[in-house]
Design a protein around this nucleic acid. Structure first.
Lengths: 202, 202
DNA sequence: ACGATCGTGCACAGCATTGTGCAAGAACAG
DNA sequence: CTGTTCTTGCACAATGCTGTGCACGATCGT
């Protein structure tokens, strides 16, 4: 007897994607959102969710790993000989992934995902770290604190803008600009210098 | 028959304070920490907690209002004719309340306390807003975005440092300095300018 | 059109948490 | 010391969420 293998149904894959989208949105607002809430927002029943994900853990894990892949991809596209431009571009690239990053940040608050989220952001961190080092060597980035702390401030500034953006609706263009200005400010540039860098990237 | 009213027992008031401290710490790590966890960390049983607070809501509400009072108090002590110095001092004052503010920020993520937290931080916001306005009028603070957005960035920078500080242990002195530098950076000052301001406050 | 795949609605067990009642003992104020 | 206040431990109900089983109907691939 030959077992006939069919392709997955189109609506099924669409529903799976809808569930992931719904989870991203719901978990961004409330990291403890129930599966009922998520499924409803995706237009499905809670029971159907279990047809796609074995457990809540499974769902969240897939969100984290998919975000990790996207973030890893953006990092590889960003580079510039001028470390200041590199920092700004890194911020702008993060802006394009804001939905995913915000979801990550919310999920990270609670228990078992802290590590995987940290791993997901590791490539961004290391590249940022390199840009900061290069910037300091060239006298372009602040030297009044350890380099690692500068990188932390830059990262924090980016997250702060991403937060602001989600609460007070920012246009995509304004958001990009703001992230770049904020990260450069954290790196020690004056606002006029930061503006010049951002303008040069236009 | 005369009802004799006794003073509250010393250990009771101490335990009440211990519960609030424990709640602050526990909720900072996990906004959904159980009362069991909180009570245990305070060295009490969950049942005893209900002797001090009628409900979970009650406990959190008291945390929020007490933090609001402390924060209101610090705001009234901070002022300086130089808006840049005022911003830095505001940041430093927040550093002294870091434990309370961090707890607030965590609690604020979830549902019904968003408003009360916003009210608690309102005085800080308005004073910051004034300093930014004065700074812009004097050409000392960035003018490449609306004043309200500058204030948001400054606030975000402060929170970012407070976050960094709790994760990677910072000394009280380093923390104060870092908050001031980060807020001034968000306000548009270069790192050398920021250092000069902070040095002048020494 | 046929059959496999998918979604639905319900029922059910398990688990964690909140909030309350009560009896007995420990710690304290006066 | 005495009596009040506080804490403990247990039992209990109520609630909400997770995860699973099953029958039926809808939808899709071929």
């Amino acid at each position: 007897m030959t077992t006939t293998v069919r392709a997955t149904r189109r609506d099924a894959t669409a529903n799976r994607a809808a569930l992931l989208d719904a989870a991203r949105e719901a978990l961004r607002r409330d990291p403890a959102a129930s599966l009922e809430t998520i499924a409803a927002q995706a237009g499905l029943s809670r029971r159907a969710l279990y047809g796609h994900f074995a457990s809540r853990e499974d769902l969240v894990a897939e969100l984290v790993t998919s975000a990790a892949e996207r973030i890893g991809a953006i990092v590889s596209t960003v580079d510039d000989p001028d470390p200041r431009r590199a920092i700004a571009m890194l911020g702008a690239a993060m802006w394009d992934e804001i939905e995913h990053i915000r979801a990550l940040a919310q999920v990270a608050v609670r228990g078992p995902h802290r590590e995987s989220v940290a791993r997901a952001l590791a490539p961004v961190r290391s590249r940022l770290r390199r840009s900061v080092d290069r910037g300091r060597a060239a006298g372009l980035v602040r030297e009044d604190m350890p380099a690692l702390r500068v990188a932390g401030l830059v990262e924090g500034a980016a997250i702060a803008v991403l937060d602001e953006a989600t609460s007070s609706g920012l246009s995509a263009h304004e958001g990009r600009r703001l992230v770049m200005l904020a990260t450069l400010g954290a790196a020690g540039l004056s606002w006029t210098e930061a503006d010049a860098i951002v303008e040069g990237l236009r």
